[in-house]
Nucleic acid binder design. Structure first.
Lengths: 160, 160
DNA sequence: CCTAATAATGATAATCATTATCAATATGCT
DNA sequence: AGCATATTGATAATGATTATCATTATTAGG
């Protein structure tokens, strides 16, 4: 327990060479690469890296907000019997997919312009809200309280 | 060639017992069930049905617009280096995922209300446009022309 | 510098959703 | 009935992702 203010495992901000290579690969690609495509790209720079590390790093980067993941597939495809157009809320913690009971209205004009800009023939659209659902918020809250009882304020003396 | 106006394989509108059971299962579920959950539910009514049929039927129903599928996972998860909020266009034919170069503006007010209605703590949002991308439109067009040359206007005498 | 403790890594196996295959069955027609 | 054709479902194959675990790198202490 040295007094050097040693960051043991909590300070993850600094990216190592592998993580930097992955981040670079994602940033320099202008389509939306899959994990395996990123793996192939990174391989050229860091030939010894394995898929597992790429996945680990991608998750870590996404969690730090340095990249974004589109279309989680750790969940299976889901089906919806409500075919009238409607929007969704997606819990970023548990992945729950909720119907929005109210429409997020947006202008036909803006939609048309956006579709034209992308070059697609617009058939439908959807608004997705991302955030933490009520259940996950409660659970996180409970865990925070419990953690406080076990290890009360580690590093409370830090500037904050 | 009987003159009974016989629908050989093109008239798929009428759903058979399996398809009806699947549709019923999707409609009666108020969460967003996965294919396997639907399979389990349908099994209770039609015990001899297999997973392959459930998947086939789900795709067919979705194609007919009777149900909707959320979060295709035939494609892998994709990553995006642009972390500033932006919207996407998704090709319903080839699954391509395109960044929208323009924002589809919508009111903060409406977003907040929708998030509250769903009970989530809003972190971010995204508009998704669904349609056919330029490449797929051209390909479909070409195929249509080719089909015309092979079988010119079958049933052109129909009322239309 | 050498060694022990610990964390990070990568090869490989396991898992899970989905799709393909193909023999068996059902359906329609004469 | 008897044949042609379409549908079905059991099972294997595929592909993405995750878990496991031995190996390797890193650090601290002597």
């Amino acid at each position: 327990m040295s007094g050097s203010g040693g960051p043991t495992a909590l300070m993850k901000e600094a990216l190592n060479a592998n993580a930097q290579a992955v981040l670079e690969a994602v940033r320099s690609s202008h389509n939306h690469p899959t994990a395996l495509e990123i793996y192939e790209a990174v391989r050229k720079v860091r030939p010894r890296i394995g898929v597992a590390s790429v996945y680990r790093i991608l998750h870590s980067l996404a969690q730090q907000g340095l990249i974004r993941e589109l279309g989680r597939s750790d969940e299976a495809c889901r089906y919806d019997g409500h075919i009238e157009r409607h929007d969704h809320a997606i819990c970023t913690t548990c992945g729950a997919l909720l119907d929005l009971p109210v429409d997020v209205r947006l202008s036909e004009e803006a939609l048309r312009m956006a579709a034209q800009a992308a070059g697609i023939e617009l058939h439908s659209h959807e608004v997705r809200l991302y955030g933490q659902c009520a259940a996950c918020r409660q659970k996180a809250q409970a865990e925070r309280e419990q953690a406080r009882q076990i290890a009360p304020d580690p590093g409370a003396a830090e500037a904050e």
